[in-house]
Design a protein around this nucleic acid. Structure first.
Lengths: 136, 136
DNA sequence: GCATTTACCGCAACTCGATTGCAAAGATTA
DNA sequence: TAATCTTTGCAATCGAGTTGCGGTAAATGC
């Protein structure tokens, strides 16, 4: 497991107070977080600073964004060695009851055969339904 | 091919002027449309009327909505016999250059093996990249 | 056919997540 | 140290989506 400092160093992102606290927060949680989630969790850090931090992280592939159909973009730390290639894809499961987003790392993504001359850049596979906890 | 009147009758949606014009517009295009798209195409129809029409259509399964990662919900007319089941799924391809959304009816969706006790309600599979026309 | 109820429409206002302008504070370079 | 660039916090703005409300049209009851 890499420390926050190591991650930022590897991804060539300058280490600042806001960046450290945001990255630490993301690392401490297993679920993808929205800007709002982070804002609520870090009450002394300004929203726009968090926003810009997330953009910076995304540009430098520290994190990747997920559109899970909840209406809010979520963010999660890239796995070690992840280059946010289409190959690194996984399904996201959005629970319509508890509003949590899960990364389904274990569910394989098939090879998508696109029409001729279409070029894949990224993909967003979101499955919605009820999670384990809510499906009772 | 069904007429607008027939579709509304089958789906038990009352036929009104706004509904007719919105449905006709959606049928006339092969690509999923956003509220904004429709608004621009129908300058004499009020946005909120179009919005409520789309909601009514969606509730009655005349159309289905798509979240394609463009930030705007898109709408497309359901195919004949479509019940908007997870089974009726298909990939959507969003071109990051020309901002168009394509339905990839011909690309099969695999069976998604969810973790134990998770329940699938719907899925949204969006592939982003360059379309035929923009990939030159 | 007329009155009453219900549904629909258009306008304007509002919500809320995302984004930006700007100036102050901090870090870096010359 | 001075000049320059980056980051931060605040406030304002943007834009898609949504809602309240009064007016109009359609459906229903008598």
């Amino acid at each position: 497991m890499q420390t926050e400092e190591e991650i930022l160093k590897i991804k060539k992102v300058k280490n600042t107070a806001v960046r450290m606290v945001v990255l630490r927060h993301l690392l401490s949680l297993e679920k993808a977080q929205s800007l709002k989630d982070i804002e609520n969790a870090l009450p002394y850090t300004d929203r726009s600073s968090i926003f810009r931090t997330l953009k910076t992280f995304e540009e430098n592939k520290v994190i990747h964004s997920i559109e899970d159909g909840s209406g809010m973009t979520k963010y999660a730390v890239c796995a070690e060695g992840c280059n946010c290639d289409p190959k690194d894809l996984h399904y996201h499961f959005y629970c319509t009851n508890c509003d949590k987003t899960f990364c389904l790392f274990d569910v394989p993504i098939p090879n998508i055969q696109l029409p001729k001359n279409f070029k894949l850049q990224q993909a967003n596979m979101v499955v919605k339904g009820l999670c384990d906890n809510c499906n009772r």
